[in-house]
Amino acid sequence: MPYPLLVVTAVTAEAEAVRAGADPGHVLVEPVGVGPAAAAAGTARLLATGRYRAVISAGIAGGFPGRAPVGATVLGTRSVAADLGAESPDGFLPIEELGFGSSLLVADPLLLKGLTAALPEAITGDVLTLATVTGAATTANTLATRFPQAVAEAMEGFGVATAASGANIPFLELRTISNPIGPRDRAAWRLKEAFAALSTASGALWTACG
């Protein structure tokens, strides 16, 4: 029997949405906590205690206006630690410019190819990981300029990718968009629609990645 696919989410509500659509015989779904540190630690623990075909970081996210509308499904070509670096008088310096490593991890090309084929309406692009959710238009505009290929923002992908990379396990980030990035207007969020889209997308996971 092939090894199962591991899907990690931040919170239980996301895990339940994935389980509603995924093949329970081949896909293990576990919430690991909010933020990149909890995501990395939780994923590393799971990978140390089991054997898996691949790891998917899944959940809802904010979408960059004009790139990923509310309700869309996003497949991350890269998971980017957007706030990993240092401030300077001339602006933000990513960790690469400091000489301390890399702020991005590339999705497994076979996983990306399989899911792109299975989810032809999905939007592909960079998914940013931030420890602080964007809540101001100025920050959203700055991120959109710094990362022209970014389509969404979440809080766990780079942490999950780091754990998967350390264990030499294929990785990809799957997100559905619940709100536009920018000023926090809870009335404009569409959580129900985003969870429904997550369940639908999760139905393709084992077929595309198994």
Rank of each mutant, 00 (worst) to 15 (best):
F64H: 08
A117P: 00
L130K: 08
F158G: 01
V11T: 11
L75F: 01
L93H: 02
M1N: 00
L104I: 00
E96N: 03
S57T: 03
L115C: 10
G99S: 13
A161K: 12
P89R: 09
V55G: 10
V74A: 10
A188L: 08
A41L: 15
A154T: 14
L104H: 06
G166P: 05
L119N: 06
F92D: 00
R19C: 11
P183N: 05
R53Q: 12
A122S: 04
T139L: 07
A163G: 06
L75P: 00
A122P: 01
V160L: 04
I60M: 04
R175A: 01
Q149N: 04
P2C: 07
E14R: 08
R186E: 11
S178R: 07
I56T: 08
I123L: 15
G25V: 03
T142M: 11
F92Y: 05
L6V: 01
P65R: 12
A163H: 08
T162D: 02
T124F: 07
M1G: 02
A39L: 09
P180H: 15
Y3L: 15
N141R: 15
L191D: 01
R51M: 04
A37K: 13
P2Y: 02
P94E: 05
V29D: 12
A152M: 13
Y3W: 12
L28E: 14
L115I: 10
G99E: 10
T124K: 13
A72W: 08
P148I: 02
N179G: 10
E96I: 04
I95A: 05
R51C: 06
A82P: 07
T138K: 05
T176F: 04
G157S: 15
L105G: 05
A72P: 06
W206K: 03
A38T: 05
N168P: 00
G42D: 05
A61L: 06
D90Y: 10
A13V: 06
L110V: 13
L128V: 14
V7Q: 14
R186P: 03
A10L: 08
W189T: 01
A131L: 14
L104C: 01
